[in-house]
Design a protein around this nucleic acid. Structure first.
Lengths: 134, 134
DNA sequence: ACGTCGTATGAGGAACTGTTCATATGTGGA
DNA sequence: TCCACATATGAACAGTTCCTCATACGACGT
């Protein structure tokens, strides 16, 4: 079942490709989430991959804040914060409430809250993940 | 405690900044993780924010695979896969084992495994997070 | 009505990312 | 020893990202 030399039987995208372990490869291909699921998941991670957006989201963990306070807390300019919040809102990660001329933003996605918790909990009691010397 | 007009007492980075709710702002600032923790967490999310890297990691969820099989499974060129794996290895998310001329990669970080599980579990039974019409 | 305040948005640019192509490195077989 | 194979790496380029600056917009106070 596990050949030590090449096994060219795997069909990827209907096209024969040289692989080492054809059984494992087709197994993995079966379990692989569909294209759009992978893309959506990558999008979520992408939203969380910027330090400023991350700070914005952490700031909202225990309640809504207005744009200028979010800017103050994160050290961003109000314009930059507004741009970032617009992006987060477009992806329904946060939602906005208007009160007069002020806009209050809050977390709108419990799932993202869980990801934040999990990620920070780990980072806190783990030594930083530093790139190793090449 | 909660003023409805401006409150300029908050000191952010030792510099007076106009804020609406000074109490909440300093509260949030206290809970905010330190700079390097935020950066490290953002880095982890960044590694997960690319569909191809995501597929590579999902492929390794139930065991090691060699570079050419990983390339086959993800649809990447072997060169692109190698570059991506190098990046993941540099951040200690995966580790490599060499056997002859082949290199087998595996997940090296249980934390990342949890993030993947959480993220995909959610994406699976949630309608995709689509950007809303502006 | 007018000015100001809080926020939103568009344009533009510097910096970064991920790919491909070409080439290098090292292993195993003949 | 020589060649082919599996992987690694560097350079370069297209595409993207996130900021700033300028400006627009709408709500409030006077």
């Amino acid at each position: 079942m596990n050949s030590s030399s090449y096994d060219v039987s795997a069909l990827v995208d209907g096209c024969a490709v040289p692989v080492v372990d054809a059984a494992r490869v087709s197994d993995v291909l079966e379990r692989m989430p569909p294209e759009d699921e992978v893309a959506d998941t990558a999008d979520v991670f992408d939203l969380l991959s910027d330090p400023n957006r991350l700070r914005l989201l952490v700031a909202m963990l225990d309640g809504e804040l207005c744009v200028c306070d979010l800017a103050a807390v994160t050290g961003m300019s109000e314009s930059a914060a507004s741009h970032a919040l617009r992006l987060l809102r477009a992806h329904r990660v946060v939602s906005a409430r208007r009160s007069g001329r002020r806009a209050f933003y809050r977390l709108a996605d419990g799932h993202v809250r869980m990801l934040l918790d999990l990620a920070f909990t780990h980072t806190q009691h783990t030594d930083a993940v530093h790139p190793e010397r090449s």
